[in-house]
Design a protein around this nucleic acid. Structure first.
Lengths: 212, 212
DNA sequence: ACCGGTGTTGACTGGTGGTCAATAACGCCG
DNA sequence: CGGCGTTATTGACCACCAGTCAACACCGGT
């Protein structure tokens, strides 16, 4: 007795189906976390079969990765969009963009930072890219990084990003301080850690930080 | 045909056996990484049966956790040992202790930071403790943290620890700078991030950092 | 020598990631 | 409008591994 009432089938254009499954997966991840997201749960939510999810995404890891990349590339595109503000205002604006994009996918970002996708090269590549983009935006493009390719500054920039991610994760988790105070804190941490920050930006940030 | 030549048995005192298995597990983890460490691989290395590892450690996660806690508690004990140096020298010394203990178990720490044990509450508790200990040591005990329990400083301390761990991981991974330069970088990052650092320590650190 | 306690193990089970050949919608052509 | 080919979709199957258990064999004590 392995049989049951066969599931009614509905055919869709592959790209539509894929989108539908992905939406279900994203919803599942945002509702229950990346760990709970499996082909089984995603399929259930989409009203399709487990096998179909494998057909479109290939593996459990790939499914989770795809969902994570949704959040990551949203942030990346946000950070890559041109900014025509005065130089002095750009870092603060970039910081705000960062927090905005992250809070829009909070659950997924929390799980990424928790290490839910640790060991997946594709995800880690994407993270590296978006981190680089963040640093570039914060240092106002003609910036510090890439200037002295390796050594001290490289490490500092990377360390600052780790600080930002960790502090943001804690803040998302409910560390009571208001968002604008968080933003100032992160901006200030950059300024003090990287004294080489180019000038129009540096004093712009300091102005914001100072007006406590 | 499920049978094979039965394995010769050797009886040991439970505590001895446990220690032997743990040593094999640590060796395996240090050689091949925490992900590769399973009851199977540990048992193979120790010349015992898979079931025995389950008997002594209970589960795969528990086995990995035990190995990780070996590294974590080594660091914790190092940080908790009293320090009779002059106040001004203590932060630098603590930083050195940190790097010493970490490099002694580099592979395991790399995996911990990579997120190999993400989601394991017991490990995360231990990490929280050791991070608190590090902050306490760096701020010279009568320190900043716990002083203003939550808010800004809490976040900054946590962020600084994230920076330290990330930068150290990168350094272990082969970022060319020498150890003493790394040490100065980390010390300096603390001083600039946490201006509230108590005085004898603060100028002690600055002295070290300055003598570039 | 043998015998009881227990340290140790091979064999089994359940669950899950992943595959595949069969199935059935849907569009199209006659 | 009905049959038919294409192919999206699926149930059933397989392999593998974490974890369990009752039987086994080693060893110290008598």
């Amino acid at each position: 007795m392995t049989s049951a009432t066969p599931r009614p089938r509905t055919r869709h254009e592959p790209s539509d189906r894929r989108r539908q499954l992905l939406e279900a997966a994203v919803a599942e991840a945002e509702a229950a976390g990346l760990d709970v997201l499996t082909p089984a749960t995603a399929a259930a939510r989409a009203g399709a079969s487990r096998a179909l999810v494998f057909h479109y995404f290939g593996s459990t890891t790939a499914l989770r990765r795809t969902v994570a990349l949704e959040a990551v590339s949203d942030l990346e595109q946000t950070l890559l969009a041109p900014d025509d503000r005065p130089l002095a205002d750009r870092p603060a604006h970039a910081m705000s963009l960062f927090l905005g994009s992250v809070t829009a996918h909070r659950r997924v970002w929390e799980d990424i930072w928790r290490g839910a996708l640790a060991g997946d090269d594709a995800t880690e590549d994407a993270l590296r890219r978006v981190r680089t983009a963040l640093v570039a935006r914060m240092t106002t493009t003609a910036g510090v990084i890439g200037f002295t390719p390796s050594g001290r500054l490289q490490l500092l920039a990377q360390g600052w990003v780790a600080l930002v991610e960790n502090v943001t994760a804690a803040w998302l988790g409910g560390s009571g301080i208001p968002r604008d105070e968080l933003e100032r804190l992160l901006l200030e941490s950059l300024v003090v850690l990287v004294p080489e920050l180019p000038e129009p930006a540096r004093s712009g940030v300091l102005a914001i930080v100072r007006r406590h």
